[in-house]
Amino acid sequence: MQKIVLEMDGIRTHFPLYRGLIVRRQRGQVRAVDGVSLSLAKGEVLGLVGESGCGKSTLARTIIHLAPPTAGKLFLHGADVTNPSPENLAAVRSNVQMIFQDPYASLDPRMTVFDIIAEAVLIKNRLSRKKLTGKVVALMEQVGLAPEFILKYPHEFSGGQRQRIAIARTLAMNPEIIIADEPVSALDVSIQAQIINLMAHLCRQRGLAMLFISHDLSVVKHVSMRIAVMYLGKIMETGPSEDIFAGPRHPYTKALLSAMPVADPEKERSRKRIILPGDPPSPINPPPGCPFHPRCPFAQKKCASTIPPLEPCADKPEQSAACVRKYDDELTG
């Protein structure tokens, strides 16, 4: 087992909802992340899958301290960094970096590529102008950008190239952990492959741990060693990538897999699809019991009252599922 670099223990991130203009009363809360425990080992890529609004982006923002957790603990190398002091925060932030979804929004339109990357370099070390330029050029080369683009502005680049700039900026901080929030979903398929290869290569080369967030199962499957499936702020199932794809133990994972379109008409016709009814419920009023039970084709009476814990399967200790029927043949078969 590799060394654990990042650990989340029962992270909850709730946003209060207020009513009233002058006297503000709390009316409820959005339970964006509701008790997530995950760990990330050195050099590991953990895929986090879920639909929009399931809290995966909030979880990412909580890890990089953009949204403070309401409860739970966050550990970096075993040290508690849930509520770091301002000095620690800087250290934590340079260690955990994020790649954002939209390469059109994550780069300041008024800065040149040089400024963008140099800004990140200068946070960690003061360098002379000459050394700084050398470092920026080196980073650009690492992500496959020609150095002659150094003085161009982000709007002069295509989506894929912009994501490369964002990756170079991330690498400039020399982080150990990268949180990638849907890094390729805004890109075309042919460009997607380039960026995925680049990220995988950099992770291997530098031994980075990565939390790879996506709604696209085929992408997650390709890059991740382990996968966690999130629904309504909770982790439904987690385990090694192959096991999850071969034998999902949670009905939601099963439905997600079956909804994933496959570019093969013959396979597409022959396979059985689970069409889930309705939309995911609102995280303001999550249903009682298992959050998935109102849409679950395998739901039973007890699902509405008990929240199943995320526990390892007896026959497969690597894989955990939060479902009362995880050993049921009807579901697993």
Binding site: G160, K221, H222
Partner: peptide
């Protein structure tokens, strides 16, 4: 052909994805 080859579903995990060079 290249589009399909570059889709992650057609490549084993850990292997490089096929990429279409250029833009």
């Amino acid at each position: 052909f290249a589009l399909q080859k570059s889709m992650p579903a057609f490549t084993k995990r850990g292997n490089e994805l096929y990429t279409i060079p250029g833009a």
